[in-house]
Design a binder for these strands. Sequence first.
DNA 1: GCATTAACACGTA
DNA 2: TACGTGTTAATGC
Length: 235
Amino acid sequence: MINRSVLERARPATRAELEGIPWLRVLEGADLQRAQTALRIAPAQTGERICRFGRPPTFWFGVVDGLLKMSNDTPSGGTITYMGVPPGAWFGEGTLIKREPYRYNIEALRRSTVAGLPIEDFHALLDRSIPFNRYLMNQLNERLGHFIAAREIDRQDDPDSRVAGSLVQLFNPVLYPGVGGLLRITQQELGYLVGLSRQRVNQALNTLAGQGLIGIEYGGVRVRDLAALRTFSVR
DNA sequence: GCATTAACACGTA
DNA sequence: TACGTGTTAATGC
């Protein structure tokens, strides 16, 4: 068994970590008990893969802290980055539901803390808990909108708009409830996600900050006006 | 014209 | 000290 999963070196979740896991709040009784016991937490180093294309499904994954990216390798040797994955995100449910191999790579852009719910516990919740099903349905619905928006962002050719759009996505409170008002991301990381140089991202952020849409902080970006940021991203 | 890379100074964790 | 940010100059499409 070579490098099966970062969750090989997992430990149980602490009380504080459990409190930060959004879907636990919809559970109660035996379902809540089972989930809390089954959840595993593990560190991921920069560049480390949380899950790999083609591997059998093992966990439903969540981001406790840090930043991941979802991507695929192309036949020509390149990489397609689909999205950044910030704190509060839970992903891979589609793969688990179908019991098919993962269809993408998830890699840590920086040192992160990831959580995992084993596939058998995931299916137990799916079979038993209506609130859990409702939570998942809501998440799938939200993500559908997320990818529609991603296409829109891709069609923008103004770099400032693209950066604005990416920020709007990363500040999604439903998909990424762990982000809050301050997104911890470097301008270099944002550049990787948007497909721009660090210098151009810096320029875009300063434009957005100049209009009061965001605040630039050391190692992060603060939202000031999400609605206006959304408007800016599709102009 | 506009974005990229490279390079450097400076500030912060 | 290592890393992130702000800025400028040279280069390329």
